[in-house]
Design a protein around this nucleic acid. Structure first.
Lengths: 196, 196
DNA sequence: ACCTTAATTGAACGAATGTTCCAAAATAAC
DNA sequence: GTTATTTTGGAACATTCGTTCAATTAAGGT
């Protein structure tokens, strides 16, 4: 051995994630990152290799955090479906203030990155979003087994529907963050549209 | 008079819009624009002033086009509600292939721009999205007058709901563009969630 | 205490960024 | 055909970009 890095790797990724989450991939410069995580170029490039790779680690870190939140919600709930509901409410409501963005970082990435210019990062973001959807599908299947949801339904289709609702709500919240309205929409996800 | 510009202004804005729509504000460089619209810097800056202003004109052009599509759909439909449905179906389905993005350009802009770095453009995008929502609200109110929708409902809340659904669907389509699923979700907007 | 090894620093790189500027070209008016 | 006026083309600007690199610092192993 010899000298060992004095900074905390996860702490650094956490700060980088918050910056990327707020400003996006293209909107964040390496200079921005340097000051945000308080590291000089040499250290950053020795540790993470490139701006692209640091971004990749950041969205993975973000996805991990989100996955842990989902697990926590499921663990502290009595049924899969109430756990899923709690997760959605937390995702949508708790990110309204004080966070880098009320929007999902993965969705923001999928929105700004292109197939032609940033294929690798875009594919990574798509993969992470698909992971979440698969998890939703498992939970819904479990809820069907417990009789919480009609087993005639298609679990993966319901999972898609949940995705659409979360994406729609969190994105719309950036324009209208009226908590009453948003809370009402969250409630209605599992009940039926306001038109019905 | 003297020399007159030989390029078609709207044609140029149209091409600029398509590029911005595809690559986003930060992902589009002035060099990209120069080649896409086939104009040299001198002409661009004499005509549009700045990258920011050209972007502003582009999202306005995009919003105008979308507004015209809505009007067309209403005109060729028998009732406000069927017109609105047609509009949503066209928006979501017809943009799946061959367009710069299946996502809404205004939503993409709201997603990538920040309050601190691009306040003016962000506010413009928010304003344009609010315009659409107001239009939805008017249509819904009209539908209430014709007995198509229960008058006890809150028109502006239903308009918000429509926004959430369109945003969610068009964004989700970037990851899963299965037309059957998407078409089904469009149908269900005015009926009730798949869970019901 | 010395040596080895790795982390840190900050200047520097070439390329790309948004924008400016001006000579050259083009047109309408006379 | 000349003049007046405006657009056009493209080189060039200062700045910022992502990244590299060499000198310096720090710490464990012996």
């Amino acid at each position: 051995m010899s000298k060992v890095a004095k900074f905390n790797r996860e702490e650094v990724i956490d700060k980088a994630t918050n910056l990327y989450w707020n400003k996006g991939y293209h909107g964040t410069s390496m200079r921005n990152l340097q000051t945000a995580i308080d590291l000089r170029p040499g250290s950053i490039y020795a540790t993470f290799g490139s701006k692209d790779n640091l971004f990749k680690e950041s969205i993975n870190y973000y996805a991990d955090q989100t996955g842990e939140l989902l697990q926590t919600c499921l663990a502290q709930s009595e049924s899969p479906l109430t756990g899923l509901k709690l997760f959605i409410r937390k995702l949508v409501i708790d990110n309204l203030d004080g966070k880098p963005s009320c929007m999902c970082m993965i969705v923001k990435s999928i929105s700004e990155l292109t197939e032609t210019d940033n294929k690798e990062l875009l594919d990574e973001a798509k993969r992470l979003l698909a992971n979440v959807e698969n998890k939703f599908s498992e939970i819904i299947t479990e809820a069907m087994g417990q009789g919480e949801i009609d087993s005639d339904k298609d679990a993966s289709e319901l999972a898609s529907y949940i995705q659409v609702q979360i994406i729609g709500l969190r994105t719309y919240a950036r324009v209208n963050s009226n908590k009453e309205t948003i809370n009402k929409f969250v409630d209605e996800i599992f009940i039926g549209s306001p038109f019905h």
